[in-house]
Design a protein around this nucleic acid. Sequence first.
RNA 1: UGACCUAUGGUGUAACUGGCAACACGUCUGAUUUUGGUUCAGAAGAGUCUAGGUUCGAGCCCUAGUAGGUCAACCA
Length: 675
Amino acid sequence: MKESTETLNFIEQIIEEDLAKGLPKEKLRFRFPPEPNGYLHIGHAASICLNFGLGEKYNAPVNLRFDDTNPAKEEQEYVDAIKRDIAWLGFKWANECYSSDYFQQLYDWAVQLIKEGKAYVDQQSSEQIAEQKGTPTTPGKPSPFRDRPVAESLELFEKMKNGEFPAGSYLLRAKIDMASPNMHMRDPILYRIINAPHHRTGSDWCIYPMYDWAHGESDYIEQVSHSLCTLEFKLHRELYDWYLDQIYDPSLLRPKQREFARRNLSYTVMSKRKLLELVQKKVVAGWNDPRMPTISGLRRRGYTPESIRKFSDLSGISKRDNVTDVSLLEYCIREDLNKTATRVMAVLDPVKVVLTNYPEDKVEMLSMENNPEDPNSGTHEVPFSKELYIEREDFKEEANKKFFRLSLGNEVRLKSAYIIKADSVIKDEAGNITEIHCTVDLNSKSGSGTEASLRKVKGTLHWVSIAHAITAEVREYDRLFLDEAPDAHEDKNFMEFINPDSLNIIKKAYLEPYLAQATLDDKYQFQRLGYFTLDTDSKEEKLIFNKTVGLKDSWAKQNTAAQQPKQPDVQQNQGKRSPLNEIQQLSKKLTNLPEEKLANAKASILKLAEEVSYEEIEPLFNTAAKKVGTRIGVMLVLGVLLKNGQEKTEAAQEFINAGLNDDHEMLKAEAAAIQ
RNA sequence: UGACCUAUGGUGUAACUGGCAACACGUCUGAUUUUGGUUCAGAAGAGUCUAGGUUCGAGCCCUAGUAGGUCAACCA
């Protein structure tokens, strides 16, 4: 038996440690805690897959808990959408929970806190409270109501609950530490008054608990062992633990909060607020627009649950900021669809082909494989006749040898049909090709096994019989933003990077008739074009297909590369290092580089050296002797400085002398060059 | 000018807790192919932010820097 060498992410390691320390495996319990104020997106999928994945791995229950403590923002519509998305991803929650289910318990605990002198009712404005709170670098001041007698707080809290005060007039605050370096510990708010109907509790409550108070205690009530959230809650952990300390019964399990980095995807944004802005400003058609990174958008676009789970799996979990390239997501969906999608033919930009030697009225039904990757997928029939459409870009009158498609005098195969040869073209007055006249080799029928059919030809084209084709609208999508990280610019708003061409609608595409029976669940590969699925806007009399993702296209890549031979290197958009820093990085490799690269590295160092001052490099003179690369780099910089008129100090001379006496040839040489 | 977190090929993650850096995507070759897809074979690309230290030995530990992120909502 092979020992499983599967590596654990840091969350799994924490769990394993807890298990090793004696936590019984049966006590493991997780939760996914969305706030029902928006749709789930691919970033949430990371959290969903983490929590539910852990549940599957350890055979532990995972609750779906709606964090619904703010009636002003939350709606039933979102609850329904969230449940739909999680179920679609293929996960089953143990219990459907709501923080609002615990309002009474939370209230009782709050009363207990007041009685113990650990909470008090405040009645200042939010401005006053904010001012007293201080700043991260200066301590706060206590509220004048901080030492209000317990009985008075109790009475006021009771009145708050009974709706005797207007919204915003009173608050319940925990009494912790106004001087804590952690702002969250400076007497955080436990309850505020909100006069809005709650989607579940209606008007039962006028006071609502804040996140920190509700979340940790909900974890505790549900006996969640590991409460996993994103990094921005790291500073909340101290408060999470403080609240737990106040009510914790040692005979019960104590939840543990741990934080991981949220997942970002390149060329899109991932915050609910920003996605909502795209919806509200009508940049997209809605939360489930196929260009949106929402689960519902991806679903409509044609992504499968498997592909999204695979993506989460490959992306991993860690604690550093990240921007995962969309190409990984695209890889995941292609990989899935390649194995499962039915192959069909569709022509999006047609040009007419006439087979001059094919009988006028003849129609053949040809057989086409549904999926060459799956031997059991069967075949379907596709009609063939004298007049066809092929893709306009699949023909050129004259072509070089790199063009594998149809051109005058050359042969090409029609997928699952015959080999044809282009003889002539007909053009309109503007010079546009309107018809391509070809002769067909009638002995070359696909699958006939004849010698002619086995002939090797350079290219294979997809096609559609004009007389039999059905039409449909096809929607092609491109990235929503032109910038890799549209919301990572301090000086620019993410909306400035919107791609104006993210949607391309082809009003009339021609499809093989088999597609007339397509359903919303079907996934197709339009051969040589990409993966497509029916859009929800589609109607029986008007089919609409979404392009999920294109096939990899090394031909297109080759072409664009040829068009723009030298693309300026647009990388290095973050972490602008200082020249000295870059020099140090370059230097350390110096001793390991092959010659050509060595010359380049040296040249770069010499150039960067112009921007470095003597004061900056002097400390580097006592670089450890074994770090030869760095010493060489420093020597090079020193050379430049001396040449530019820098006085040769004692320290510099010493450094040069040390270099001269070094064993390393390169260092010795560079020292000799400037001594 | 405080606290906390983070730093490994272009990108995302690994490295059995100290033994000279692995996997995936992407990129580039070549083969196969009735999809310029798939598949297969291969290549290039990082000495792990910098400096010092501990150690026989450091990506992992310590110190100091640097860079990025988070925190001052009656949001979650």
